[in-house]
Every structure is written in C-alpha cells, then in structure tokens.
Write a protein that binds this DNA or RNA. Structure first.
Lengths: 209, 209
DNA sequence: TAGATTGTTAATCGATTAACAATC
DNA sequence: TAGATTGTTAATCGATTAACAATC
C-alpha cells in the first residue's frame, strides 16, 4: 500500500517525525499558520529545505500565506501512517522493555501494546505496562491471534538475530530494534534501529573535536 | 583538543561506531585481516566508501593486503575518544534511567556512572545500577566534585530544557538526550539525541511504503 | 492592487561510486 | 615477479541552497 507516487528519499523521511512534533507543539499553542521561514528558524533548517521537503508529498502551502498548522500536521500524520492503528509487542522484559512498555506516547499515537514476552521464569507472569509477561513458548499462537504489526526487540545482543528470524518467520513486518546489532531480515520486513551504544560513541567523538 | 587535522563530515562520524562494532566482532572471532571489499559486504556498504571513510583519518591499510583488524580497531577506538575515561551521570531514575544505568557496555568502554538523580522522594535513596539515587538539590556540588563529562538525560519532555540549561550552566559539555525534545544548549556543548518516538514514526512510515 | 510566501527550476555543494596508478 | 588491494583522483549522483515566477 504505497501512499504516494513520488518516491521520497530516506533523508526526508527521517525529518518527517520532527515536522510532526513541531507542528503538534505549535497547534498545542494555538498557532494556526506558519511560514517556511518561521518553521525553519524553529527547527534549525532552511526555508528552502522545508519547502522542498513538503513538496515531495504535495502542495500543502498557500502562496502569500504560508502553511495551515492543523492541516499540515494532519497531512504529515497520515504520511507517517499514524492515521492507522498498529498492534505491537515487546520481546525482552528487562529494563529497556519496561521503559518502552510505559511510554504513553506510543498508545496515544495508535501503537497498541498487545503483549510482552521473556524467557526468564522470574519475569513471566509479572505485569509490565498494561500486560502480563508471557513466555516465549507462547509467541507463535500470540502473533497469529493478535495480528502483530510491530515487534519491539529489547533482548540481549547474543539472541537478537535468533529472535528476529523467529518473529519474521511468523509474519511480523516491522521491528523497532533496541538490541545493539544489525539484523538480517527478509526484504519485505522493515527495521528501525535504536542503537544507544552507537549514540554514546558519537557523543564521545564529538567531545574530542 | 582536536584529534585530527582534516575535518570529518558528520556522515562519516555516524559510521564510525559501526566500524568499531564490526571490527570488535571480527577480533573476537580471531580474524586478523580484512579487505575493504569483505568489510563492505559485512556492513552493507561499498568498498570504495570504506576506503574513503578510513582515509579521512589516515592510511591504516596496506596495499595488496587489506587492513589489520586489531590495528584498525585500535585506531578507530582512539578516534572515537574511547581511549579516555568519561565520568557520567544520569538524570531521571525512571524506567529509561534504570535501563541505561544497567548497560554494562558503557562501563566496559570507559564511561563510568558516577551518579543518578531524580526529584521523586520515592526514588531518592534507592539503588540504581551501582549507585544510590540522589536528589536534584545535590546536583551542583556533585557535578563540581565528580568532574562530570557526560550527562544522560532521561527526564520527561516537560522538564528537559530546564534540566539541560541547569547542567550546562554547571559546566557539563556532553549530553546523551533521551527526552523527546530538541535541546537548546551553548555552542560548546554537544548533544546526541536518542529519540525513540521519532524512530517509531519512521517505522510506521516505512510499513506503509 | 501591493506584499508576502509558496512551488519549482537552476546552481551549488557534498557524498558516493568508479577507476586506476601506486605498492605491498 | 604476479596478484591483490589500497590510496586517491575523477565522475556521478543526490541533497541543499538560491532565485524567482506564480499566485494567494
């Protein structure tokens, strides 16, 4: 289900969530219209860049006026696929799994936590976020019954690939990967990595510049 | 303390932690040498790109042979500043603060957790990672006494900017920011953002492509 | 209508890829 | 020496910036 005809570069895609955030904030503050120049100064981009970005999708602006904040926010929300709901699960009920399970923002944007899994008998049966932790043995049945779209991987590096293979074999098409390794997945599966170690090392690099 | 003469683009910098990870893995598996072609296929880059990247820093390879894994890893470790130690602190002892405090990898690479702070009286006094949670009232004295290089921000969005201003006023020069907002900091302070919400939204976008 | 600001084309800049001489 | 592979230059590709006609 491709939403737009022109293909959009990854560089632009990575900026879309930021646009969504800033526009949501503006709306929160009852700001109705904004020009590319104003938004640029707010976000630390250039006005040109913003107009180019927004035009990869369509003409959301109006000459002589600027952009209507509410309309543009709705458009980007839809572009990001946030007009649909997503069933999600977390694998790994350690500290990171806990942290994500309690992120209110996910639910607010339509990403519904359906289950949390772990192999540790001490964790199975405990409550994390809004759900009871299940054992990995139950995962096959669970994924089928709950039509899981997104799996959030919070397992140790050593088992990351094994678990990724398991869930993609069971039909999961989206992975938000907190395990610090690059996953090898089938071509129709999308992975977004959150690699905290990489971020830390980028920071230590920048500290020495 | 600039480590290298040629200035390196952010694009290359962002790849350095990945090189470090892959080279560490190779070394772990007792692989002594690797060619740009082999490393490229492993990392999903091109051989040309790897040779260009590594040459932003210096000639670590050898014609007809390739790269010595151990030597190259040491070089990149130094480039990333991981030959020094860093004193770090975490602000926010919620789930995310807990998760980071228990990351073994940080300590292993010389990033030493000196303290964890929170404002919640229920959290102050509890043990997180290896340290006892302190109240924010003690932060000024603490930063001075411990020569904190890096602050890991795990506070709610609403207080993120306030806390960032506080710690940069106290001399902290590096922030690993898990709070989902863009921080406004002085020019000599470096911030690396880990924005989980942005990552999730990138994933939902890609799921609809 | 005049002023403002977009949408869009053209120019510039930067990053990736290709090619090959240097050299181990 | 012959084969392999780097370091580096040149060519290509893509992203950002600049400029301005279109138009609200």
């Amino acid at each position: 289900m491709q939403r737009f005809s022109k293909k959009v570069s990854m560089t632009v895609v990575k900026r879309l969530p930021k646009y969504y955030q800033y526009l949501s904030d503006l709306l929160e503050n009852d700001i109705e219209k904004i020009s590319s120049r104003e938004l640029a100064s707010l976000m630390g981009l250039t006005a040109s860049q913003i107009r180019q970005d927004l035009n990869s999708f369509g003409g959301y602006g109006q000459q002589g006026y600027g952009y209507n904040v509410g309309e543009l926010r709705e458009a980007i929300k839809e572009i990001l696929g946030l007009d649909s709901e997503y069933n999600c699960m977390i694998i790994g009920a350690g500290n990171m799994g806990h942290a994500i399970a309690n992120y209110e923002r996910f639910k607010r944007e339509g990403v519904i936590l359906k289950g949390v899994f772990d192999v540790d008998p001490l964790r199975v049966g405990t409550v994390v976020g809004s759900v009871v932790v299940k054992h990995m043995d139950e995962i096959e049945k669970f994924i089928k019954n709950n039509e899981i779209d997104i799996c959030i991987l919070c397992v140790p590096r050593e088992v990351g690939q094994k678990v990724a293979t398991l869930i993609t074999d069971l039909g999961v098409k989206g992975i938000l990967n907190f395990s610090p390794l690059d996953l090898d997945v089938p071509g129709d599966v999308v992975v977004e990595n959150v690699n905290i170690t990489d971020s830390l090392f980028t920071l230590t690099y920048l500290l020495g510049e």
